[in-house]
Design a protein around this nucleic acid. Structure first.
Ligand SMILES: [Mn+2]
Ligand SMILES: [Mn+2]
Ligand SMILES: [Zn+2]
Ligand SMILES: [Zn+2]
Lengths: 154, 154
DNA sequence: TATCATATGACTATCATTATCAAAAAGGTG
DNA sequence: CACCTTTTTGATAATGATAGTCATATGATA
């Protein structure tokens, strides 16, 4: 059921988004487009607030409220066009989902986020779920540490 | 620096707690003891609120406020006597930390939590961190799926 | 037991996220 | 294009988990 949007261009993603919108009886708006565009052009990890500010900066003529950012991110995530990582109390960060699945290595000092993928771990996770009678749908894996930059400073 | 309290009895944990309290110029109180006791007797995963209710139920003669539960859990966690898992928006769950390190497999339907440990994954995680110049201090791994009970019901 | 620093419970404040709602915009239809 | 209906929007209020405040209570020490 889960769509895969790996390596898609902006136009392809936009078409997908429009299809999703149509399929759900929703409407295509300039706010929704601006959010997708901003995420595409900045393939980083954003809090809702950060993204809100960047969208306004990139689209000065567009009126947009923070509520719309929350709503649109939820819509995009439900349809696998964006993915999110939960950083405990520090909230949630979102990124465009046109890259292969990966997990995150996070520096506790400076917040730097490094992406990595590891097939061995993925397959072990499936095995663990199976052994416990679970059907694995999803997982969350974040490694925390101190990056080389920050190690120097100590 | 991180203490290891695996397999400790309640008395041993209590002694550790008292030492920590003394070392920090704090005071040993009946509320703090009741919280540790309740966590020890119920080695499950509690939200702050759930734990608060259970402590009151188990110690009807003790006056205790939710704020004290938050404060004590923070103190216990800082000193590695309890550990927590962050469940996104659904908040944080705490458990006594006198068991070996493990991660969690969580049913999305009923919330059931299964604990597991996997040395292969742990060592792969260290390898990944090393490859990226990070010093690994910690990690978060949660597998989400549907348990066998819940699969039946569909 | 007297002293005094810390802890407590009730309460308020905070802060991210959601809900509400009247006004605006989308997008069919002819 | 004008009309019509539905969805969307932004401003704002509400929510809910957690943290902070403060006067009083309590623990540790002598
Ligand atoms: Mn990422
Ligand atoms: Mn556990
Ligand atoms: Zn760093
Ligand atoms: Zn289940």
């Amino acid at each position: 059921m889960k769509k895969n949007f790996e390596e898609m261009s902006y136009d392809e993603l936009l078409t997908e988004f429009k299809n999703i919108i149509k399929a759900n009886g929703l409407k295509f708006t300039s706010q929704r487009e601006a959010i997708l565009r901003t995420l595409y052009d900045n393939p980083q990890h954003f809090t809702s607030e950060n993204l809100y500010m960047l969208v306004k900066q990139r689209h000065p003529d567009l009126t947009i409220g923070i509520a719309t950012v929350y709503r649109t991110l939820a819509l995009l995530e439900e349809n696998s066009l964006v993915s999110s990582i939960s950083l405990g109390i520090q909230g949630k960060k979102f990124e465009i989902a046109n890259k292969p699945h990966h997990d995150h290595l996070i520096c506790k000092e400076c917040g730097k986020i490094v992406e990595f993928g590891n097939e061995k771990i993925e397959s072990l996770q499936h095995q663990i779920a199976k052994e416990n009678g679970f059907e694995l749908t999803d997982h969350l894996m974040q490694l925390y540490g101190v990056c080389s930059e920050c190690k120097k400073e100590t």
